[in-house]
Design a protein around this nucleic acid. Structure first.
Length: 365
RNA sequence: CCAGCGGGAGCCGGACGGUUAGGCAACAGUCUGUAAAACUGUCUAAAGCAGGUUCAACUCCUGCCCGCUGGA
């Protein structure tokens, strides 16, 4: 299991977009996140199984964690550019309409776990329902109870398959409960009482104000910590989040942000002793005209291959011209920035200077 | 010199006797378990020039100017 603060990049379709596994290794990535729903649709979990699992398929020597498809219960249910509702939730499971061709698919907790065992990542996640923000308490309670029943079904199926297939995958249970204190506590108690290998906190970063997100975590985290199991935050990863949550004992978090920001043209950086700027949040747009003649690296202190060799003017140009290399260099850099920052947090948590580092970065405790 | 076609934002360009696109570029912003190399916003002005017809002209007519193509 993961034992120290780890940032987990997202590689939904068995690839961290634009980078090779070798490049991930170079910048210090230890693990990335794949998605059950997407890989079930393409190339199909059976196909991946035939290839010998995700590690052999991708040639990635590090760790892999797969999400259960639970987030898609939330994501595909949202109106997306006028597209209709693609999911239907029942006690037994969730009916998905493929976003690719509209075909119907039904995920039960058992099915999600079966797919994940076929994909054969190192860590897998119980099937849950990620409730939207805002949700009424009545609905949040109903969804939570259902998620708990699904948790047990996931756990049972998982234990069965580990035994049957001679695998040793580790399973995370997911705490839900929306933004209600008692529900979060109730969920944390329940999930921690089960035989999960790790505890994930989900249903956060779904469009709520950041304060709300911190609150939701604060309800569940103290209980989760008592379990002495690794704690994963699902879908969290702004720079301040790394400090706030790793600092409180969270073991890992995954987030699409650094890779997605990179493709959107925003680079993460910290120049000198700049305090956390609520406005720019350590990021800037490389396509802005101010960088056209800027011959300094994205971040002068960064040791990633992109920063060692290339300057902003060049990457600015690559983005202006929509050249593929631009997306690659920016992704490389943003991930390296996340990994390096996490490494600093690891180090200072060990030597007792974490608070100082955090204050230095964020200008607050 | 003759003929044909054409002249509209920085560029391309549809339509149309009324209220009048759209795209690109430019500039800025947004993104937290990826339906995302995406999305949003700003720029929203004019019709080569001079007349004419009309209640109303970018649109129809005349002349001139300029460009492209073809022909002498």
């Amino acid at each position: 299991m993961l034992t120290q603060p780890t940032f987990v990049p997202v590689g939904t379709q068995a690839t961290v977009k634009s980078l090779t596994p070798e490049e991930l290794e170079v910048i210090g990535v230890e693990i990335f996140f794949c998605n059950t729903y997407h890989l079930y649709l393409r190339p199909g979990d059976k196909a991946v199984k035939k290839f010998g699992g995700l590690h052999k398929f991708t040639r990635w020597n590090g760790k892999i964690i797969t999400d259960s498809g639970g987030f898609q219960v939330f994501s595909l249910a949202k109106d997306h550019n006028g597209a209709g509702n693609l999911v239907k939730i029942t006690e037994d499971g969730v009916e998905f309409r493929s976003h690719l061709d509209g075909t119907l698919h039904f995920f039960t907790p058992e099915k999600s776990i079966q797919i994940q065992h076929n994909l054969a990542a190192d860590y897998i996640i119980a099937f849950d329902e990620c409730t939207p923000y805002p949700s009424t308490k009545k609905y949040a309670q109903k969804a939570l109870d259902r998620t708990h029943r699904w948790a047990i079904r996931s756990l049972n199926e998982h234990q069965k398959l580990n035994e049957k297939l001679g695998q040793d995958l580790k399973l995370y249970g997911v705490i839900q409960g929306s933004y209600y204190k008692d529900l979060r506590e109730q969920s944390a108690e329940f999930i921690c009482s089960q035989k999960f290998d790790g505890i994930a906190i989900g249903g956060i970063s779904v469009g709520e104000p950041k304060e709300k997100m911190r609150e939701a975590v604060s309800y569940a985290l103290p209980i989760a910590l008592k379990s002495n199991k690794p704690i994963h935050l699902l879908g969290v990863g702004e720079i301040d989040d790394l400090f706030d949550f790793f600092g409180q004992g969270v073991t890992s978090m995954d987030c699409t942000l650094p890779t997605r920001l990179a493709r959107g043209g925003q680079f993460l950086h910290r120049t000198g002793d700049a305090k956390y700027d609520l406005k720019n949040k350590f990021k800037n747009q490389i396509i802005n005209s101010q960088y056209k003649f800027d011959q300094t690296p994205l971040d002068p202190e960064c040791h990633c291959p992109a920063c060692q060799k290339y300057d902003k003017a060049y990457i600015h140009h690559l983005f202006k011209t929509q050249e593929l290399l631009g997306y690659r260099l920016m992704t490389l850099h943003n991930l390296a920035f996340m990994i390096d920052t996490t490494q600093k947090i690891r180090n200072t948590l060990k030597d007792g200077t974490f608070d100082k580092l955090k204050y230095n970065w964020l200008g607050r405790k």
